[in-house]
Write a protein that binds this DNA or RNA. Structure first.
Lengths: 150, 150
DNA sequence: GGTGAAACGTAGGCCGT
DNA sequence: ACGGCCTACGTTTCACC
């Protein structure tokens, strides 16, 4: 397992902020020579600490202006029921995240669609037809005062 | 506003998948010369369609093995109350996302800590002391069968 | 949108600590 | 085992077509 010392911590912090900065700039920021810095980055990638690099897009400029979180309760807690639900949900493009949680419901989903009509369609035509679903509660996102992933 | 034609769509799709692939590889994938491709990427950045580039880290390898979603209800819906709450929440490192939602509660938060003890500390010492908070419901994440951001 | 060439960055061998 | 130096190679970037 790769050791996360102070320098690796700074590297990860910097790459989380801007994954496309050059290795030269990164090396200077963390106080290392370029080659030493590159070796550390490669080791972090190899070890799986860095899982990848992604562009962050502005959903509002791209037709995913509607965001909602939806809690879903199932009518059975068997493995088969959960797997069937997860399979169905994986196929839906609108579902960006699906978390299996403890509490009064089994799942918390993040849904992104073009608008409310798009959400309604997903809600009734996709989620509504799944036989495993017992309860649905929608929380429409009006704003995100803090979002470290955006 | 920048037009999202078929090629820009492919560019965004590719950069979402791997933000660090070379412009040469990207150009070939979208069927453009490197210079034309670079101009499009730069324009997408300038227009704010691409908001930035981030490394995706493996939380389990880094001491944020505990993830929970928390719904928070406030005891007043005034602007001042909301702003005070949002200011307090912004300062907390454990809060990775804060969404203002419709429904029976006002906020949905994503919390990441080292372990359950770390969560308990945040729950009682940070969230518990805010005077604006009326209700708290915790949904501990046991797994994420789908997470497009990870 | 494509071409070409200069500027720049990457990546890996090598040596010192 | 880890960091710094050097250099060949690849990539980015931009003026020009």
């Amino acid at each position: 397992m790769t050791k996360i010392d102070a320098i690796n911590d700074r590297i990860l912090q910097e790459l989380s902020r801007d994954a496309r900065q050059s290795n030269l700039a990164l090396a200077e920021r963390v106080g290392l020579s370029p080659s030493a810095c590159l070796r550390r980055v490669q080791e972090l990638e190899r070890a799986g600490v860095i899982k990848g690099y992604r562009a962050v897009l502005d959903g509002e400029k791209l037709g995913t202006g509607f965001v909602a979180y939806v809690t879903v309760g199932l009518n059975s807690h068997t493995k088969a029921t959960q797997e069937a639900f997860e399979r169905a949900i994986s196929r839906a493009r609108e579902v960006r995240e699906c978390h299996n949680v403890t509490g009064t419901v089994e799942y918390l989903l993040r849904i992104e669609t073009f608008d409310l009509a798009g959400y309604k369609h997903w809600h009734t035509e996709v989620l509504g037809v799944l036989p495993q679903v017992r309860s649905i509660t929608t929380y429409v996102v009006m704003g995100s005062p803090k979002d470290d992933r955006a």
